[in-house]
Simulated scan of single mutants.
Amino acid sequence: MTDGIDSAMAQPSDEPFDLAVAGAGIFGLSVAHAAIKAGLRVAVLEKDRVGAGSSGGLLGALMPHMPARWNPKKEYQFQALLSLEDHIRQLEAETGLDCGYRRCGRILPLTTTDKLDHHLERAQESKLRWRPQETGFSYIVEPAGSRADWLAPAAAPHGIVYETLAARVSPRAYLAALGAFVRARGTLIEGVAVSGFDEATGSVEVSGETPPIRARSLVVSGGFSAFDLIERFTGERIGRGEKGQALLLEGADLEDKPAIYCDGLYVVPHGNGTVAVGSTSDRDFSDNSPSPARSAELLRRATAFCPKLTGRQVLTDWAGIRPRCNKRDPLVGKLPGLDATYAAAGGFKISFGIAHLVADCLVAEITGRAATHPLPATFRPEHHFGAGRLDADR
């Protein structure tokens, strides 16, 4: 960890950074990665360490929205999941680090005839929305008893959905690769929290005895605590934290199994011989520590529908406070009333799947170019602030 700026990271006295990023989670590091590749001089300022917040979890589920009631948000996420593998493979080539990515697919159990009928309709719509002949990704309803070596048949009495767009990544390995890229080509300072930004002087105010850092623009990221800084800049509170919890089990011989979503939980095998199980979502919480009772509940529920997990060693548990905008969708763009202060926050459950595309859009806005895939209107600041704001208690 770097406390403050050492000689290797020192900023030239007369030259500001093009961009400072507050927060070294998946959104912050992805923005920094995209900005550096766009030719900007970038500094990432992290109050703790890379992945110390909700981004440093265990699950790594990269799951698509259902191919029904299609809208710009679902199309955006679809495009993000289509392009993520190439993005990660390039990052791995740039850093020499493995991100643990694999297109694993996903099983969804069908527990009622209504759900069976509903997903048969979704399977038909997937042919239009997912374009399987072009993309190769399918959404198929299979009969009861399918894939019974992995999902308990009793959990899916009316069959299953098996879709092949879903993927997984190791959250911590992905963050480590992004962090390595930023350290090698930009500036990454851990142990320094951003507390303000004076756009007139370009002074980024930071905690402790570290001198201010100068930058032409600031991006506020950094998990649920980003909402505090955003409120300081705008006077509006547009999000909150929700606690999630997950487990990591020994998973030898399960590496090639698809992810399962059942009973509100994900089971996600990883390539390093582990299986992640999670995650819960608690709006009311007193701390960010794992609850032993919650861990026991996760294990009990997961083994009920996935018997191959029975008796496997629990390697670790995790809990974190995830950022959730009051209107659910992420906040991406210039903050209202400001000229050089932006945000990329509130990704909640879909951050890892869309972060690279969010970063492309935000850096495009900052540099004045067209984004590869424009942001959905519901991600934009005008959806979250002013007349569009939704208070947390509504």
Rank of each mutant, 00 (worst) to 15 (best):
D14Q: 12
E15I: 14
P16D: 11
P16M: 08
F17L: 02
L19K: 09
A22V: 00
G23N: 10
G25C: 09
I26A: 14
F27L: 12
F27G: 04
G28D: 09
L29E: 05
S30M: 05
V31G: 12
H33T: 11
H33Q: 14
H33N: 15
A34P: 07
A35M: 05
A35G: 12
A35S: 09
I36S: 05
A38W: 09
A38F: 09
A38C: 10
G39T: 04
L40T: 07
L40A: 11
R41H: 13
A43R: 08
A43M: 07
L45G: 07
L45Y: 07
D48C: 06
D48Y: 05
D48M: 05
R49F: 13
R49L: 11
G53D: 01
S54F: 01
G56D: 06
L58S: 00
L58D: 00
A61T: 00
M63Q: 06
M63T: 11
H65W: 11
H65G: 05
P67V: 03
P67Q: 05
A68P: 00
N71F: 05
E75R: 15
Q77G: 02
F78V: 00
Q79N: 15
A80D: 08
L81T: 00
L82R: 13
S83L: 03
S83C: 01
S83Y: 00
L84K: 02
I88N: 00
R89T: 12
Q90E: 07
L91K: 02
A93H: 09
E94Q: 11
E94G: 01
T95P: 01
G96Q: 02
R103Y: 04
R103I: 05
C104Y: 01
R106N: 08
I107V: 10
P109N: 11
P109S: 12
D114N: 12
D114S: 13
K115G: 09
D117F: 10
E121I: 10
E125S: 13
E125Y: 11
S126C: 12
L128H: 13
L128C: 03
W130D: 08
R131L: 13
Q133M: 13
Q133K: 14
E134Q: 15
E134Y: 04
E134D: 14
T135N: 02
S138K: 13
S138M: 12
S138L: 09
I140T: 15
V141K: 09
P143G: 14
G145V: 12
S146M: 06
R147H: 14
A148W: 04
W150E: 06
A154W: 03
A156H: 10
A156V: 03
P157I: 06
H158A: 07
G159R: 00
G159T: 02
I160K: 00
